[in-house]
Design a protein around this nucleic acid. Sequence first.
RNA 1: GUGGGUGUGGCGUAGUUGGCUAACGCGUCGGAUUGUGGUUCCGAAGACCGUGGGUUCGAGUCCCAUCACCCACC
Length: 378
Amino acid sequence: MFELITTDGAARRGRYTTPHGTVETPVFMNVGTQAAIKGALDAFDLESVGCQVELSNTYHLHLRPGEETVAAMGGLHGFMRWHRPILTDSGGFQVFSLAELRNIREEGVEFRSHIDGRRIFMSPEGSMRIQSRLGSDIAMAFDECVENPSPREYVVRSAERTYRWLVRCNTALADFNSAEDAVNPGQVLWGINQGGAYADIRVEHMKKIRELDLPGYAIGGLAVGEPTEVMYDILEHVCPEAPADRPRYLMGVGTPSNIIESVARGVDFFDCVMPARNARHAHVYTLDGRINLRNAAYERDERPIDEHCGCYTCRHFSRAYLHHLFKAEEMLSMRLAVIHNLYFYNSLMERIRAAIEAHEFEAFRREWSERLDRRLYA
RNA sequence: GUGGGUGUGGCGUAGUUGGCUAACGCGUCGGAUUGUGGUUCCGAAGACCGUGGGUUCGAGUCCCAUCACCCACC
C-alpha cells in the first residue's frame, strides 16, 4: 500500500495506494469538512488546484446530512463527485474542540451538537460505522485529543484509553468492510498517536499502536497551543518509533514552515484549515511571505498575488481587483483567494517532493522554511 | 418674510437639573486564526462638540448673534 521511493535524511518520498488511486507523498490534504471546500469550491475546482486527497469530517456529516443519506447517494465519492482518495477524520477532535458539555467514558463520549444542542453519543464503533457509510478510503481512529498543557496522570490514562479505542475501531471496521452493503470495502483504518506534550508517553503509545500493524499512523494532538519547538521535539522522538514502511500523518498542521520542518523529521501526510481560512480572511501566500489583501497598499497593485504562481486566480486577476472584492465583501473574493492558497500549498508539496527526489532537501529547507511564513509588507 | 426644529470624529447617533482624559455602532487602518468558527477575536488612528461672542470657578449642555440644513405657514 505504501511504497517508499527514496529518502533524503529523515525526509521521505513515497507513494500510497488507495481504492481511488495513488497519492504522491509528502502530501497536503485539502480540507472539505462538509463535503465542500469553504469558499465555494467544488470537486472539480479541487482538481484544478492540484489536490490529491480530499478530507471530510465524520462529526459534521453525521449531523448533516447524515451518513445514510451520503451512503444512499453513492458515498462521499459519488455524492460530491470527487473520484480520487478521500480521508475522513473520526470526529474525535470536534468532540473536544466544538462540542460543549462533553462527558468522556470508557464506552465513548457524550456531548451536545453545536447545531441544535441535542445530545449525541459517539463511540469508536459509532465513528467507524459512520465513516464506513461515508465510504472514505482512509478512516481515522476515534481518539481523545487532550489539550496542552494537561496533567501527566490524565494524559497517561487518556492515551491508554485511546489505545483501547483504537483496538475497538480496528475490529469494528473489519466487520463493516465485510458487510454486503459496504460502500467502500477497501477502506482502511489509520491509528493515531497521542500523549500530549510528553515525549516518553508518546513513544510508549506509538510502540503499542504499531503492534496493530495498521496501514498508516497519525500523530494527533499537536499544534494545539504548545510551542512549535515542543512539536518538533516530539516528532523527533515519535517518528523513529513509527514503522518505516507506513505513512505518517501529522494531523492539523500547519504553516508552510511547519510542514517543511515536519517533512524533515519524517512526516508524509498533512492537513490544515489554515490556507483556506486565511484565504477567507484575505491572507494569501507568496514565495516571499504572506500578504493581507485588505491592506490599502494593494488598492492599485496591478500584479497578481504571486508573479510565479500558475493558479487560476494569479493567471487572471490583480491584487487590486481582489482588494476591491474583499472590501466589497463579494463572495468571489473568498473563492479566488482560496483557489490561490490551496494551489500554493499543493505546489509547495510538489517542490518538497522534487527536492527530496533530487536529494537536495536540506538546501530547500534552509532556503524556504522561514521565508514562507514571513509577513510581507507592500 | 413669519414660526418651529436640528447642527457632536468619514457616516449615524449618546451625552442626566452645566462638573473630571466627550461615549457607542458602522466605516477606516493594522494584527490574530494549525484533525474548519465565511457572520470570530484583539489593537490603533480619528472630533478643540457649525461659527463668533457672553454668563460661570467650570459650557457639548445656559444666553445673544450669525451661518447651514429641514418642516410648516404666508
